[in-house]
Design a protein around this nucleic acid. Structure first.
Length: 863
DNA sequence: CGATCACGG
DNA sequence: ACGCCGTGATCG
């Protein structure tokens, strides 16, 4: 067993617990009116505004002098300066030094200005000998740490300047512009001036390399005694492919000290691996990780099943602060361990360069990746060069190439940062009203189910891809021939060239109010659609775009993701991200299977038919009918909405019946009479209400006048009185509190801050109001599906049902089911999806079955 | 790397 | 001016 420090060189730049700045021995640099280190000094009236105050207390570092500071040649004398001085006086009685990251007047700070000014800040710190430092905003943090950050969402981040804690807040100028930011800033500044850091400096922590079976037994015995264990793994290669490896596994107790690390050789050795496998599988020992869902599947496959997931710092962070980053490197800033990834990434860059050099030189060149050790990569995939040639990403393999010590130490820092973050975030999630219920009842069960879902993947037919490909290629050749008349070089994928062709060369008149935010004439579908009557070019361009999108994203885009399953047949394993959307919805990447075209066109059908059942099996699609409207009815308690739902009428049809006399001057007495076009328009209006769409936009979509759109909106809201009240009340409450809430089982659940509600700009405030209304609806609906994922997954496992849960798409589940079990599985999936508490509002689930996802037909199930 | 476009719910 | 939440391809 080798024991080493987590931070062997505390003076190394950018190391957590170390020093980012040169602090001693330099000349006095805190002021230089003749400074030419960056161009800012030329624009400033008084270059190099000096620091001000007395040493021995707190140093507050702002971003840069403003107009008032430039004129007075003193820091913090303008509006926000006075605001800051008053607040500081409230909470700090000792000496204060006021300084800026950039010492010349600037409209905005650029990283190069910060870099040029860093020696001045270093000199100030050297002289001020502070007991604490406050970084007032991103520029100050950048100067002090070398790292970028988002102060608004990275609340209460801190780090260490030697033994001196550095606390992050937003810039006081930002606080002055927004009352919700001000509220946070004042809380955080009080914390920064009065609190002790929640964790000590991590630089004396130790990591131990597990080398022998005896080491492994000792590590496991020590870890088993802990209340829970933080586990983190590093990998190399592409998951679901043969070259995929677990490169190392680190585990530590909540204290983080020591952190035990198994390298690849130890994982490959069954005797050294066994104690770790027993520990991971022990249901009596809780496991904590960062995005532990991704670790569950490969640890399960390569080491052994992981039981008892106690916490996930990424998901906890996203519950506690949905707008903040969920990356461990950012979460690490909350425990004073930020920057732990920088050293590793520097090693990765060196390793990748070394690999490229060596590959070019025929494999002869040496690898020398860090100065202090023998060049010893973790392992190198034998066929890496080949894999890279066939399109694999270097990034996914780079951890296999770095120096072994570097990787293992990084892995240890990850596990320790996760352990400490869990100690910070676990209590926060438990303390905040509602979050604990979402975590225990929805998110944790879902997260474990998602690991299984990703492992299953979606069955794919390569023949169907080829058929789709041939179909698209033929059509595209045809369209290209038509486009050639505008020039062989004409590129319809370039908005610039399309603009030039349509509006300069062909002199088509753009419709009114269709400029993009940057002031250019838009070439979006809507615009081209309008121009179709005047010339053939817009139509050709639209056709080309549609086909190119389909081919690039939904046809060719699927091929790189094909992986053979146990039977040798192709599947696609997308990543489902449980924290993908700020509302609580899952997102889906690599590839995104949540935006495959729908089946209303031939191309859509072909795109979805790529996902096809195996012989003897079928695809089963179960989707909540109009879930968001039902949620809106639930949240508002609206009796009219409920009446439509209670009657079992399609909700949009019901709405059409309500508004028909106003909009089309007809009166429907029976849902069966409602014209499809009227149902579609009602759907448009329902969407408009839930999303806060403006009347102008609704009018355009309904091809009617602004006045008419307003009349219809008011008519619907006049009928759905409680919904109208709920919208008003929700907006009002969010404007008071600055956040929105979702609901679960009759009580507030998720929490989302909406800072734009406090913005001075009216347009941004309106954005905030729309979010305040939409978030509770979208987020509450999301948890109905999230909870369904967990229930269905557990049911399949507990009943050993011949079924696979393949995909979750916002309000729907896609399953792969053995033909003879369809009735039973579908009936139970539907039953489980309908089992969530909905305050008496009836839910409905449509079930469709077919050989492939694009060829489904609805089935009726016993009640 | 931001902007634009296009696909889904 | 006026639609919420996403991912991905492509351009400049």
């Amino acid at each position: 067993m080798r024991a080493r420090r987590l931070y062997p060189d505390p003076s190394a730049p950018l190391a957590a617990g170390g020093l980012a700045l040169p602090v001693a021995g330099g000349p006095r640099l805190d002021v230089d009116p003749g400074c030419t280190r960056c161009p800012l000094s030329r624009a400033a009236r008084n270059p190099c505004v000096p620091a001000e105050g007395e040493p021995g207390g707190v140093v507050l570092v702002g971003e840069h002098p403003g107009k008032a500071e430039d004129a007075a040649r003193r820091p913090f004398v303008g509006g926000s300066g006075k605001y800051l001085r008053e607040l500081v006086a409230r909470w700090w009685k000792g000496p204060v030094v006021l300084e800026n990251a950039v010492k010349c007047f600037a409209a905005a700070t650029a990283p190069e200005h910060v870099a040029a000014c860093r020696p001045f800040l270093a000199a100030t710190l050297d002289e001020a000998k502070p007991s604490r430092i406050v970084a007032l905003g991103a520029a100050a943090w950048l100067s002090l740490t070398g790292r970028s950050t988002a102060p608004l969402t990275q609340r209460r981040a801190f780090c260490w300047h030697g033994d001196v804690p550095v606390f992050l807040t937003v810039n006081p100028a930002a606080a002055q512009r927004n009352r919700f930011v001000a509220r946070d800033f004042e809380e955080d500044l009080e914390w920064a001036l009065t609190a002790a850091p929640p964790f000590p400096s991590p630089r004396d922590l130790e990591w131990r390399e597990v080398e022998t079976e005896a080491d492994a037994l000792r590590a496991a015995a020590e870890l088993r005694a802990a209340p829970w264990v933080s586990v983190d793994a590093e990998t190399s290669g592409q998951q679901w492919t043969p070259g995929f490896r677990v490169a190392s596994v680190a585990a530590c107790s909540p204290s983080g000290d020591p952190c035990w690390v198994w390298g690849k050789e130890q994982i490959d050795d069954a005797r050294v691996r066994a104690p770790l496998a027993l520990l991971l599988g022990d249901p009596a020992v809780g496991k904590v990780g960062a995005n532990i869902k991704s670790d569950l599947s490969f640890l399960g496959e390569r080491i052994g099943p992981v039981r008892n997931v106690h916490g996930d710092v990424r998901l906890w962070r996203k519950l506690e602060s949905p707008e903040a980053s969920g990356y461990l490197e950012d979460i690490a800033e909350l425990v004073g361990m930020g920057g732990h990834k920088d050293e590793m990434m520097a090693g990765v860059t060196l390793a990748e360069e070394a690999f490229r050099r060596r590959t070019r030189g025929g494999g002869k060149a040496q690898m020398s990746l860090v100065a202090d050790g023998a060049p010893r990569p973790v392992h190198e995939p034998e066929d890496l060069a080949e894999q890279l040639k066939s399109g694999a990403e270097m990034k996914k393999f780079s951890y296999a190439l770095v120096h072994r010590d570097l990787l293992l130490r990084y892995n240890a820092r990850d596990a320790v940062a996760a352990a400490w973050a869990a100690r910070l975030l676990g209590p926060r999630v438990r303390a905040r009203d509602g979050l604990d219920r979402v975590w225990t009842r929805v998110v944790r069960p879902m997260s474990e189910a998602l690991a299984g879902m990703e492992a299953v993947g979606v069955p794919v037919s390569v023949d169907a891809i080829d058929v789709f490909d041939a179909h698209l290629s033929t059509k595209m050749t045809d369209v290209r021939r038509r486009l050639d008349q505008y020039g062989k070089e004409f590129n319809p994928d370039s908005p610039k060239q399309v603009r030039e062709l349509l509006f300069d060369k062909l002199k088509l008149r753009p419709p009114e109010d269709t400029e993009t935010p940057s002031g250019l004439q838009s070439t979006a579908e809507e615009v081209l659609e309008e121009l179709k009557g005047h010339h053939s070019a817009p139509k050709d361009i639209l056709d080309w775009r549609a086909l190119a999108k389909l081919k690039g994203t939904y046809c060719d885009g699927m091929r790189p993701h094909l992986r053979p399953d146990a039977a040798g047949l192709p599947r696609i394993h997308p990543s489902i991200l449980p924290d993908g959307a700020r509302t609580g919805r899952c997102s889906c990447v690599e590839p995104n299977l949540q935006n495959i075209p729908r089946t209303s066109t031939d191309e859509g059908k072909m795109a979805r038919n790529i996902f096809a059942a195996r012989p003897g099996w079928v695809m089963v699609h179960c989707d909540f009918a109009q879930l968001e409207y039902r949620i809106a009815a639930m949240l508002s308690g609206d009796p009219e909405m409920r009446a439509i739902l209670d009657k079992g009428i399609d909700f949009h049809t019901g709405t059409a019946m309500v508004i028909a006399p106003y909009l089309w001057h007809v009166t429907y007495t029976d849902p069966g009479q409602v014209a499809k076009a009227h149902r579609d328009d009602a759907k448009t209006i329902n969407f408009a209400l839930l999303y806060g769409q403006g009347d102008g936009s609704t009018a355009r979509k309904l091809h009617t006048s602004l006045a008419e759109a307003e009349r219809v909106r008011l008519a619907v809201l006049g009928k759905f009185r409680l919904l109208a009240q709920w919208i008003n009340r929700t907006t009002r409450e969010s404007k008071l509190s600055g956040f929105s809430r979702t609901w679960w089982d009759g009580a507030p659940a998720r929490w989302r801050p909406i800072y734009s509600l406090g913005d001075p700009d009216e347009g941004r405030r309106a954005d905030g109001e729309r979010r305040a209304v939409n978030s509770p609806i979208q987020g509450t609906a999301a948890d109905f599906l999230n909870a369904s994922i967990a229930l269905v997954s557990d049911w399949i496992r507990d009943n050993a049902a011949p079924a696979e849960l393949c995909l979750a798409i916002h309000d729907a589940l896609l399953l792969h089911v053995r033909e003879d079990a369809v009735e039973e599985v579908a009936w139970n999936v539907r039953r489980l999806m309908l089992s969530h508490p909905s305050s008496g509002i009836p839910l409905d689930v449509d079930v469709e079955v077919g050989r492939a996802w694009g060829s489904l037909s609805k089935i009726k199930l016993a009640a």
